[in-house]
Amino acid sequence: MIKNIVNLGDAAIYCDFGEEVTKDINSKVIKYFRTLKNKNLKGVTNLSPSYNKLIITFDLNETTFIELKNNILNLKLDDETKNESSKISIPICCDKEYSLDIDRLEEKLNKSKSDIIKIFINKTYFCYMTGFVAGMPFLGDINYKIQLNRLETPRVKVPKGSVGITEQFCNVYTFESPGGWNIIGNTPISIFDSTHKKKPNLINPGDEITFYEISKKDYIKFYEK
């Protein structure tokens, strides 16, 4: 299932599952990721699953590229009868002050705000990966009718909770950070909470996500809770 395994530096392994981004390829990545997470192979220090790649870092004092490569090639994948995926529903407020790029979206997509939001909400998304900054989920695929490129000039600061779209993907900014995705709204719920020691991430690879729209009044209420 892995197309190619090479070293990435002297302390990481790069597993290539193919060029495309599809749910099928990504599911294979996640399957390897979950198996390796359960197996706790000697020397492995971190696992980074993404759309179609899996990067495994290791402690060079404990193992080497060749040794670990062989371990991975001989890995018996976990038979997953139990489905670890969760279904999660996220509130989003698309009021003017949170929908930062709505004018751009209306113009580029040649659609009204209400149509764009309707198309966006009317879909279940799949979590391909999480990362970049803590807990940020990369979700897909959005309807081709609302797909567009990222901003020509990225924002220096995207507010925390912003929901962005670009190409076939959407994401949620878990922290204020720079970013170039088209911001369609904002969620008041915490996607990453470092005080939850066991499960800081609300959304994990393989999960299924839906969004539902809330009013500004309800948005503010969320914060008051």
Binding site: S50, N52, K53, L54, I55
Partner: peptide, 10 residues
């Protein structure tokens, strides 16, 4: 490239 994992020193 399609977004993917990174390691220290890349």
């Amino acid at each position: 490239i399609k977004s993917e994992g990174l390691v220290k020193g890349t």
